[in-house]
Design a protein around this nucleic acid. Sequence first.
DNA 1: CTGAAAGCGCTTACAG
DNA 2: CTGAAAGCGCTTACAG
Lengths: 358, 358
Amino acid sequence: MIRMQDIADMAGVSRTTVSNVLNGKTKRVSQETIDKIRKILQENEYEPNIGSMILTGKGSRIIGFVMGYENVHGYSSTMDPFIGELMAAIWQEAEEQGYYVMLIGGSAEKKVVEIASKWNVEGLILIGYSEERYRSLCKKLNQKAVLVDTYTIKEEFDYQNVGIDDYDGGYQVGRYLKRMGYPDAIFIAEETRIKVNEAEKRLDSDRPFHGLCNEYRWNGFKKAMEEDGDFCSIRRLVVVNGKWEIRKRQYQQLIPTFLKVGALFMGSDYNAIELINFLHDNGIKVPEQVSIVGFDDCMYAEYIRPRLTTVHQSVAKKGQTAMRRLIRMINGEILTEMYVKEPVKLVIRDSVRKRTGI
Amino acid sequence: MIRMQDIADMAGVSRTTVSNVLNGKTKRVSQETIDKIRKILQENEYEPNIGSMILTGKGSRIIGFVMGYENVHGYSSTMDPFIGELMAAIWQEAEEQGYYVMLIGGSAEKKVVEIASKWNVEGLILIGYSEERYRSLCKKLNQKAVLVDTYTIKEEFDYQNVGIDDYDGGYQVGRYLKRMGYPDAIFIAEETRIKVNEAEKRLDSDRPFHGLCNEYRWNGFKKAMEEDGDFCSIRRLVVVNGKWEIRKRQYQQLIPTFLKVGALFMGSDYNAIELINFLHDNGIKVPEQVSIVGFDDCMYAEYIRPRLTTVHQSVAKKGQTAMRRLIRMINGEILTEMYVKEPVKLVIRDSVRKRTGI
DNA sequence: CTGAAAGCGCTTACAG
DNA sequence: CTGAAAGCGCTTACAG
């Protein structure tokens, strides 16, 4: 391992000067010296010793990847293909830019603070955090951070968030379903509960997805549905329970509605697939009797029969964007745009059939 | 942050003594002093500064998680639910034991060596490595390591590997299918290619899965099939191509065989689900006409219709075991058992139907 | 414009 | 049995 001292020796200067060049404290160094040192640095592929960096309180080049949730639909969230893909993208981008990624379990705030300070982490990427939890964490920890998919109930984002264009996704589905002959299609999504100070709080009932992705999706959907002067009632926004046992019963009762409207826009692929199976088990055919559109384009979407028509989002792109923005912040840049929306695209497969002769 | 100096001050001794106690160089310290220092250490929850540890060449408490493969079936391997779950288990176990996990992209050997030495990593967990690649890595890097699911072509393992009891899994399936009335069931698995020095090498044709998991699965399956004095020909081991386009054609040609034998044991859930869909698309009903058993019990297994009967393995347990063993090695223990097999269990769902009246 | 010196928190011969 | 001192590789006032 080549040390700063070695570089200094080669250049015939002191360590201080090398350090100054390295840290851009270049005002008080002659251009000639700078060039010489830079060249030697390059030639020798100098990399500072990590221990020293941490010890002197300088950047560790570590990015903490904080995983805020543990369970989704009863499965470990890390089984969610989403997490893995996101992590891979983040890690790859980090590597390219000379950063390292350390895993931090986000369940215990205390742990996050502990690890972040112990390792002198340069920045954090947080996933699965609610706005509330993030704010609570912020009080204890002052770190540059980019969140992924953390929506806010406020009008404006005052933290860095990377998400997708939910509104446009909903809009695309709305237009598509209308075109396919379903002007009465409904939007179905699972209720969201948010933890506030240990207690679960159900969201506002007349605005069930206040500030969350499903609100944007619904708004886009509604917009498309109303485009030709039609009206799309709020009653076409159906909120179902978070527990499968209850949800199942709700689906049961909704069957007549499903058959009548003919097409359903589900808030997630998970729910879409679950519903396809449910309908299948009840002898109802998709898409012959009911058309279904999902959201996410997860791996399963191509497995299920009928193959699922859904809104594709690039998880890898999300991870890359989050990482890139974080690094810009670390480099001292002030980002003005707080909420970056990655584009989405409707992928047409086999779960929607054109309605003829109504 | 509390430093060693602080502890020394409290105890009224020098840093050296504290360090000696901390590092177990306890011979030359009086018992009284030891006890006193230990108590103070505890009370103050002393944690050594990481930068110092790295700088002085002592343990960094970092475990490198090396991901050896990038793509499985055309998807990023990290989308494989398996990876995420494994990672979560490893990370959780690490945290409990006071270790940290750093992500290392395993594609480039050079990078692995670089990062491992730069961070003074204490050990490595490798996933998705072939035996060859691991040996190649070992030449460049001397690190304690535990591999996950890396089989060897040799008779004995000379490296630490954590896997599952593939033989028993195959055996359980064999017995089950026999009991369900399918004494002629076949085993189908995708061919495996192994990279040797940049070139892909196809495995031995008369022993297509030499040393790999599918060989164990087949052996267990065969054993069960032969239990009552029956014979199970090697011809019931069907190797299909790794490329879907080709494999599809093979399936097409095999349809009569499928219908005749009535039951198929697939080498993975992936292939099982793929085949269920293929048969579905060809108007063949599972399990009415063909029964199918998978292997892995991935998340999809419960999604697919019919729900897949398959061999369950606990990925989380695997990760935990790998981590625990690595830590024991780091602590200087010499592990005698080289290949740990986690138990597996057949999970019966709906993809196998009892054959009546043949 | 440049360098000698102190300091970050630890370990490890070595002297007592 | 215990401690003063040097060293790990870096940064940062500070003096020149």
